[in-house]
């Protein structure tokens, strides 16, 4: 189980659902200590790419390498190093925040589960609500709890799908600080978002996706907005661009 890696490489990854191609020959390299953004309009393929990188979805063609391993050969050992915060938050609404975190700690076989759970609740700012059921939480509180759930086992690769959804300004700023901390700890962070203001503050590079293809890459957060607009113009229906 002591598998580790310092880069994730997607090589010519394509993914089809029936006749619809969600990803088309996407290649990317994500290094440890860097935050890579996936930008693009709805339906661009961002969530599909995250699902492929998380090993939940096998690519139709191409491959993803985690260091020298692939999902097929690494299996549980690769999954132990991946944390995923999806659009759905993967929390049980009938359990308390503490019970949710304790369950995932047991699932990952973490030692000192009690102290890790307490630390995660503190980081999420939910210490006083730890024994409340999650169904009574606001979207922002659930989002913070879900982020801690994804980070509980100290993953090397962190995949975040719209992590700023539902967060107020203070929580958004706290998330930015958290991502910077993870980056300095050597995590590989891949983040899909529409929030360019927040993304520009944390991204080291960005991939702009459109119709399942990589339309542009931006080497630093500052150029992401411009590239994103260019990609939107390139993928817009011809009627729209003519007006």
């Amino acid at each position: 189980m002591a598998l580790d890696f310092d880069r994730v490489v997607a090589e010519e990854v394509s993914r089809s659902f029936g006749r619809r191609r969600a990803l088309s020959r996407v290649s990317m390299v994500c290094e440890a200590g860097r935050i890579v953004g996936l930008l693009g309009p709805n339906g661009a393929g961002k969530s599909t790419l995250l699902a492929v990188l998380s090993t939940l979805l096998p690519p139709s063609s191409g491959r993803v390498r985690y260091g020298s391993h692939e999902a097929r050969t690494g299996g549980p050992a690769v999954r132990a190093r991946i944390g995923l915060l999806g659009h759905d938050l993967y929390l049980y609404p009938d359990l308390t925040a503490r019970e949710n975190l304790a369950f995932f700690a047991r699932l990952y076989g973490l030692p000192d589960a009690g102290s890790r759970v307490a630390e995660a609740l503190r980081t999420a700012g939910l210490e006083s609500r730890g024994d409340d059921v999650v169904s009574g939480f606001s979207r922002g509180m659930r989002q913070r709890l879900a982020l801690e759930r994804a980070l509980l086992h100290g993953p090397r690769l962190l995949l975040l799908d719209e992590p700023f959804t539902g967060l107020d300004e203070a929580s958004g700023a706290a998330l930015v600080a958290r991502l910077r901390g993870l980056k300095s700890d050597g995590a590989i962070v891949v983040l899909a978002t529409h929030d360019l203001d927040l993304a520009e503050r944390v991204l080291d590079e960005a991939l702009v996706l459109g119709d399942g293809r990589v339309r542009a890459t931006a080497p630093s957060g500052g150029q992401a907005r411009e590239r994103y607009r260019e990609a939107l113009r390139a993928t817009a229906p011809s009627g729209g661009s003519a007006s």
């Binding site: 189980m1 939940l56 549980p76 999954r79 991946i82 929390l91 049980y92 609404p93 699932l107 990952y108």
Partner: peptide
């Protein structure tokens, strides 16, 4: 809340 996916991610 799609927790089956989280279970499938367990190591």
């Amino acid at each position: 809340t799609d927790t089956l996916r989280a279970l499938m991610l367990a190591p």
